[in-house]
Amino acid sequence: MHFSITNSPHTDRPNSVVENMLWVIIALVPGTIALTWYFGWGVVIHMVLAGVAAIAAEAFVLRLRRRPVKPAIADLSALVTALLFAVAIPPLLPWWITLIGILFAIIVVKQLYGGLGYNPFNPAMAAYVLVLVSYPVDMTTWLAPRMLDPHPLDFLQTLGVIFGQGLPQGMTWDAMTSATPLDVMRTELDMNKMISEIRQSPLWGDFGGRGWEWVGNWFLLGGLILLYKRVITWRIPVAFLGGLLVMAMLFHFLDQEAYPFGLFHVFSGGTILGAFFIATDPVTASTTPRGQLIYGALIGILIYIIRTWGGYPDAVAFAVLLMNLAAPTIDYYTQPRVFGHREADGE
């Protein structure tokens, strides 16, 4: 009797790329709901917009490259990039900025390097940095969280704003928008205010800005789902948060009024999202166990440095991209000791 030949292992495989990507999307749900709750429908609208644009761009480039389109779309990686970009941008960002960001992420950062698995930089973060340096005002205009905004926009109004219809009658940008907590902290510290003084404002919650800290908590829940499902390992997020916390606590200890305390940094800006969803992107991160610890810790430290002394209020994207650059070298110098080799041989 004849049989067809298959490759070993001759078993069902427990993992698949699609499943991994699907779990990332599922893990984004709690944070996304929180974000939408506090900052309105813009979050969802941008997710849809970015998702459609990313899939279209991916299909377009794959056709140009004469590569099979279907499996690449089906692996959901373009969608994940789009969703991560969408949750990182301000909810009322004009639609065309999102479009530019996504086209850059998919076409230039991902596909021009060879597609999934070959891109040295995190596409969502590279795109974020591109639009941040190109449209700094739009990119730093965040809505105030719902408890601080007396007249939140409804869905259609939000849609109108994003697609260039302007604000509804009687509303002004000044009334609705607010700088992010990180931005406020920076600006006011630059004005030589003391932290205890700054924190008098109704903007602040227990750790970070009101609303913001809760978004962080829900993304943290998503991160724990990823850990539980073994989509990511603990090393990068723990080292990332550890590096940031150690830096923040050290400077806070030196001068409590000039440097915010550690948990402020953890629950502000894109820290939690970055630690669990961005820095853990396997394609662009370090892959050896020791390398992941170094990679994560250095991202945390860089974030603190850029936030505290750099030119931008948040720094997750910059820190991740800088460390993407270092990942291959870190991997090279952190190879584990191979069974049966002495320590020196493993290096």
Binding site: T6, N7, R13, N15, V17, N20, P71, D75, S77, G115, L116, G117, Y118, T233, P282, V283, A285, T287, T288, P289, Q292, D331, Q335, P336, R337, V338, F339, G340, G346
Partner: peptide, 23 residues
């Protein structure tokens, strides 16, 4: 049939599973 192999996404699970601690 596992279907056509996709690109390596460098997830590192192989290194975690390797009994010889290879990469």
């Amino acid at each position: 049939d596992p279907g056509p192999a996709l690109a390596c996404i460098r997830c590192g699970r192989c290194a975690e599973a390797c009994p010889v601690t290879l990469l």
